[in-house]
Write a protein that binds this DNA or RNA. Sequence first.
DNA 1: CACCGTAGTTATCAACTGATAACCTGTCAA
DNA 2: TTGACAGGTTATCAGTTGATAACTACGGTG
Lengths: 190, 190
Amino acid sequence: MTRTRLTAEERHEQLVAAAVTAFARGGYAGTTTDQVARLAGVSQPYVIRLFGTKQALFLAAAEHATGRVEQRFRRAAAEQADLESLGIAYDDLLAERDLLTMLLHAFAAGADPALGPTVRACFGRIYRTVRELTGADEDEARGFLASGMLLTVLGVLQIIGPDAVAREPWMTELIGVHNEKKDWLGPAPE
Amino acid sequence: MTRTRLTAEERHEQLVAAAVTAFARGGYAGTTTDQVARLAGVSQPYVIRLFGTKQALFLAAAEHATGRVEQRFRRAAAEQADLESLGIAYDDLLAERDLLTMLLHAFAAGADPALGPTVRACFGRIYRTVRELTGADEDEARGFLASGMLLTVLGVLQIIGPDAVAREPWMTELIGVHNEKKDWLGPAPE
DNA sequence: CACCGTAGTTATCAACTGATAACCTGTCAA
DNA sequence: TTGACAGGTTATCAGTTGATAACTACGGTG
């Protein structure tokens, strides 16, 4: 039962994916490199060897999460190149709570001078992608990002999404009845 | 030079305020109770005694930050009870980056089952406050919160605000030229 | 003035965690 | 066969850090 040997590149990618999941809970400081390592089935020192520092691993995870969002948007735009299409695509992303939570943790951690530049670049990439794919003007793109941020927070807080908690009155109000059929809302209350 | 003795309640409040500042950088796991203690000029074990656990301190800080936002909104609504007035008030809050960063960290940490309920309650309080103060309907309030979340992230990432970093082209675009005179944008580029 | 409750401290610790160093091992070319 | 490189491990550690325990001191009050 020898563990499958992967190329450094393959292991790298696998670890970044594991890092997104791990950092989603716990955030930057609250996640150990050992947790990421176990999730990928390798030893903790090997993670450090591949990425140098925990910080580099976190930034790689943030960029990976950003890339996933971008990728999903491009796929949506290939079918229909407008904001509505990207909005529907984002509904899919809401189902992957790890991704959104990782992003939100990255944004919060962006206050740290060491992480700020990279995190800002991630945010900028998303903005540019939205504009380039849809041709939306500044105001439209800003509105899209604003809605996206709200949905992201609501998703992270499990107010919307597949694994949403029991819905309280104010949550139903905030979500809005006209959205009740959208699948990103999670199971509707009986 | 005997340190000023405060009542437990006074010290409590002072520590919560210090916690907001401390947790703003570092987040939940990345901030030590000792950092909070030093910020308030007391010993670390005393912080634990007053709050029981680090987690309780964090939640108290999150609720305090929420309360500050609420308070600011109420003051604005006392003069003019509509969304525009609250929006202007929020511009003021953007200058207090610690507050926003604390909130964003709290939202991100809300994915943790132990913190989720309290964080959701904080978010709910803000939503309810906005609606009650302005009489805005669901859609208007949702739009307001969405804009608020975007501004919060932009503030935390120092893309807007008094201590904003050097502005890159996409940032100027995203912020929008029509906002150039607003003081929450920080110093305009020459 | 002696007492006592409240505000605070110092001493201490067990557990954790990122990082380093040294070692192991499969595979493939010559 | 052999060597050598890439992929990976075990051993180890120094620095933290939340929390507990035991002790100290101020200030009002009978």
